[in-house]
Computed example of a mutant assay.
Amino acid sequence: MQSMYFTEEHHLFRESLKDFLKKEVVPHIEKWEDEGIIERFIWEKFGEMGYFGLAVPEADGGLGLDMFYTVILLEELQKINSGGFAAAIWAHAYLAMTHLNKNGNPDQKKAYLTPSINGEMIGCLGVSEPFGGSDVAAMRTTAIKKGDTYVVNGSKTFITNGVYGDYIILAAKTDPAAGNKGISILIVDLKSEGVSANKLNKLGWRASDTAELAFDNVIVPAQNLMGEEGKGFTFIMEAFALERLIMGINGHARAEYALEYALQYMSERETFGKPINQYQALRHRIADLHADMDMCKQYNYSIAYRLDKGDYVVREATISKLKSTKMADEVAHECLQFLGGYGYIEDYPMARLLRDSRLGPIGGGTSEILREIIAKIVIDKKEYKAPSDS
C-alpha cells in the first residue's frame, strides 16, 4: 500500500528485518520468556545487522537513517509477541544510547556508544526511584564530587536491562539543595563495587530483566559526567518525548498484531455452521477496534515525521502514549475475548499479549501523569520548549 511516510527502501528494510526476527529471534522467545534471560549472542547479531545504529549518525559509527527505520524496528519487534524482548532492545537503543548519542563526549562515545552499536555492551537508563517515578525533581539518589570522582548513593527501580546490562545512564543529584537544577547525568558501570541488583518478578515483559538497583558509595570517574553538572533534568525532559512516542508506536503495533491474529482465528473458527467473523456483533466490534488502532497509527506516524524534522513534540508525544497505550489495552482485552477459552490458554499468543500490554499505560509516565501534563498545556497554557529555546 502506498504511504506518504515509507519509501521502497523502508519496505525492503521491513522485509529483511521480519526475516531476521523470524530466523534469529522467534525460535528462542519461549526459552527467554520462561527463564527471564535474553542470551547475549542475540545482541551481537543485532549489532552485526546495524539495528542498534539506525538513529546514530554515521560519524559516530551508526547508519544515520531517518525516524521511520526506527518506527519499522519498533513495529516488527511488537509482532513477535514478546513485549519483554522488545523492551530490552528499545530500552538499550533508544533510552540509554539516545543519551550517549546526543550528550556524550568523544571519549564517552568511544567507551560506551561504539560497543553499544556493536551489541558488545548493553545499556539502561536510571531515572525512576522507589519513592518517586514520574516526579523526577524529587529523586533522592546523590552523586557527590570528591576530587576527580563522584560518590553515588541511592536507588533506582523498574530499570529495564538493569540486572544483566553493562552500564546505566544514571540521573542523580550533584547538588541536592538545588532541586531540578541540581540533577546531573553520569555513566555508571554496573559491575562497579557497591552496585547491587534485585530482579523484579513482573506480570508481563517476562523475557526482559527489570531491576531495582542500589548504589552504596559507588565510585564513578568524573569523566563519566555527561555534559555539565546540573543539566541532567534538561536532558531527561528532552528524551521523554522520544520515549513516549516509542511507547505509543509500540501500542499501535501491538494492537495491529492482536487484530491480525484474532481475524485469522475468527475466519477459521466455526459455530452453527459459519465462521464467527460472520456474526454482526463481532464484525462491528472488530470495525471499531480497527478504526481506533488506525487512528492512533496515523497520528503516531505524523508525530514521528515531525520529530524527525526536529520539532519539539512534547505535547503530541504525550498524547500519543496516552491514547495509543489505552487503545492497545482495549484491543488486547477484546481480542482475547474473541478467542473464547483459547484466549485464556498460554499456548495461544493473546494471554501473553494482554499481560505485556498492561504496562503501556504505566511505564514511561503513567496515564494519570500524562493527563496532568496535557491539562497544564491546554488549561494552564504552560509552554514546553526545547532546551536551546529556553
Rank of each mutant, 00 (worst) to 15 (best):
A255S: 10
R306A: 05
N217E: 15
E330I: 14
A55T: 12
R315K: 14
G227I: 00
G53F: 00
L21S: 02
K18F: 07
V71L: 06
M237P: 04
H92Y: 09
A86K: 04
N161R: 05
M49K: 09
Y51M: 01
P57A: 04
M67Q: 06
R14E: 10
G62C: 07
E24N: 07
E193C: 09
I89Q: 01
K309N: 11
K79L: 09
V218Y: 00
L370I: 08
K376D: 08
S82D: 02
G343C: 12
N101M: 11
G204H: 01
F272K: 12
G310Q: 07
K22I: 05
K309R: 13
S208A: 12
A386C: 10
R371T: 12
A262D: 02
D216I: 15
T318V: 02
V26K: 04
G104K: 03
D34F: 12
M350L: 15
I369F: 13
L336F: 08
S128P: 13
L125E: 01
E33D: 06
A262P: 06
L17T: 11
R254G: 08
K23S: 11
L125I: 10
A351K: 07
D107S: 13
A111H: 09
G36K: 06
I246W: 04
Q264S: 14
E260Y: 15
G273T: 07
N224H: 07
L125Y: 04
E334R: 13
K326N: 13
A96G: 09
S192R: 03
S357A: 13
D288E: 15
W205M: 03
E268S: 15
L213M: 09
K181Y: 10
R40N: 14
A59E: 08
L353M: 13
G154T: 06
V151S: 00
G360T: 03
L190W: 01
L77D: 02
R206G: 01
E9M: 07
E24C: 05
V378P: 10
L73K: 00
K199Y: 10
A211I: 04
Q278G: 11
V151I: 14
I303D: 03
Y69E: 00
A332H: 03
L95N: 02
I303T: 04
D166H: 10
Q298I: 15
V152Q: 00
K382C: 09
D311S: 14
E75R: 15
R14M: 11
R355C: 10
A138N: 12
D148H: 09
E243G: 07
P275E: 03
L354D: 01
E330L: 14
S82C: 04
D166R: 05
E229F: 02
G53A: 08
K145M: 06
I29Y: 07
A91D: 02
D148P: 05
G53W: 01
K31W: 12
A211F: 06
E270S: 14
I379F: 14
A214I: 11
L65H: 04
S134F: 05
A96L: 05
G340L: 11
V127I: 15
N180H: 13
G204C: 02
A137S: 12
D294A: 15
S357T: 12
A172D: 00
M4E: 14
A253I: 08
T141Q: 07
A287M: 13
E372L: 11
